[in-house]
Each structure stands twice: as C-alpha cells, then as structure tokens.
Write a protein that binds this DNA or RNA. Structure first.
Length: 250
DNA sequence: ATGGCCACCCGAGGTGGA
C-alpha cells in the first residue's frame, strides 16, 4: 500500500499537482492537510473516495482512498473548533491524518496546540495497541523534533515549532510506541517545509514538520520512503510550501 | 537574468502561515 502525506496549502491551488501524484505515483491513500476549503467545494478525484474535514479559508484535512474505507471519524469527539483531524480504517491499516496547530508565543494558541496533542494521544491510547495494531499517524505535526530537523538550530532556538515543550511532545509520541519512518532511515537533515520567503528552498533553509509515524508491527512492512523535493522546487505549477512524502508498505 | 511569498477573504488590502 502506497501512502502519500502532503500539506497542500489549498487544495484548489494544488488540484493538478495532487492529481499527478495520485495517478502517476500510484497512490492508494492520500492524507492531505491545509486544504483551506469546505467539504462541498473539495474537488473530486475519481475513482478515489475522499473524506473531508473542511472549513472555510483555514486549516482542513482530507483522506482520499482508492481502497474501500471501512471506518472513519471526522474530528475528535464533540469537536466544534478547527478542522485538523481525520481517522480512517482501510483494510487492517488505521490511518490518522492531522494538521497540528502552529501555536505561537502568546499563551492562548500555544495552549491550544498542547491540548490538541492531549486529545490526539487520548484518541490513540483508547483505541489502539501500538505493539499489535497497524497504525499510521501522519501529517503536518508543526514540530521540529531535534536539532537536525531545523536548518539552523541556533537561529531556531526559542521559536515556535522548536520550543522544548513541543519537542517533548514528539518524544512522548515515540515513547507511546511510534516509529519515525524518515528518521529511522537516515540520521541526516531532512526537511519537509521551506518558507516561500527569502528563497528558502534554494538555500536549503528548511524544517522537518511533516512526519509518517508507524506502530512497530508496520516496521518490517515498510518497503520504501520517498521525499518529493522536486515538487516543492518547481515553479510551474506553483508549489505548496511543504514537501510531499510517500511511504510504501508491503 | 538564474530569485525571493502566497492564498485566503472578496473585489482592497489585511491576515495567517512557520
């Protein structure tokens, strides 16, 4: 099974790019973030079935699957707020697609970010045994885990996405039993986000904010991981500021 | 020149992203 995760920064601006990825890269399940649109205006990608947790203008996540979706949950239980979470079961695979809040240095949004992670952990703990189940947690976590995950750790010290509390949040997910697929493949700097400003992508001034985390039974099934940097680098059509990731399970 | 933001709201510039 080939799984794509991609922060599209507006699905309507990235419809062509997503179509190319789905069909030319032979994707089975696509986890999309920052779709920035309500469900009614989300484009169709037949024969993919798309589940959409949308909202106007901001945020929003979607899962598009070529394979039958057995179960799903759109948003956390009783959630009224921002659209950042979708869970789907496809075959034996439990796939959680998230767009974590950025948060900021002012208390309110940062607190919301921490609360979002509490809810996420609660959802996982209540439903899955990560030693036995096939669980994939992917998306834009908006956290750079370690120094190697930011292009300049001196410059990023004290900045949001790289604050100690956030980095501990990533530690906590790994302590729960998740494996960071990209990091388990290489100790080298790998970036999935490049700011549009300042020509960041040409200077390799990036951050690793997008992840594919897997439960331990999926590790021997992980066949390949691909970082599609060219999709971020090219100018026509206009790119998202994030890099798509493809992981294949066998 | 090779290059420095982009997409949303709507119909102008303000705002949020990270």
């Amino acid at each position: 099974m080939r799984v794509l995760t991609f922060n599209v920064n507006s699905i309507r601006s990235r419809q062509k790019v997503v179509e190319e990825l789905l069909f030319y890269r032979d994707i089975d399940v696509a986890c999309l973030q920052e779709i920035k649109v309500v469900e009614e205006k989300f484009p169709q990608f037949p024969p993919f079935q798309c589940l959409v947790n949308g909202q106007k203008q901001y945020n929003g996540v979607a899962v598009c699957s070529r394979l039958p979706i057995e179960k799903f949950q759109i948003g956390f239980e009783g959630e009224q707020g921002e659209s950042r979470f979708i869970y789907t079961q496809i075959g034996n695979y439990h796939i959680i697609n998230i767009y974590a809040p950025l948060g900021d240095l002012y208390q309110k949004r940062f607190k919301y970010k921490m609360e979002f992670y509490r809810q996420l952990e609660k959802f996982i703990e209540q439903r899955f045994d990560l030693r036995r189940d096939f669980v994939i947690l992917c998306g834009d976590l908006n956290i750079a885990h370690r120094e190697v995950d930011v292009w300049n750790s001196e410059e990023w010290k004290g900045k949001v996405t790289f604050l100690p509390e956030e980095r501990k949040e990533m530690d906590r997910l790994l302590e729960m039993g998740f494996i960071d697929v990209v990091r388990s493949a290489t100790p080298k700097p790998i970036f999935t986000f490049y700011d549009y400003r300042g020509g960041a992508v040409y200077k390799n001034h990036g951050l690793r904010l997008d992840y594919v985390l897997i439960s331990t039974p999926l590790l021997p099934k992980t066949h390949s991981i691909e970082l599609l940097l060219n999709v971020r680098k090219r100018r026509d059509p206009k790119p998202s500021d994030h890099v798509p990731l493809i992981v294949e399970f066998k």
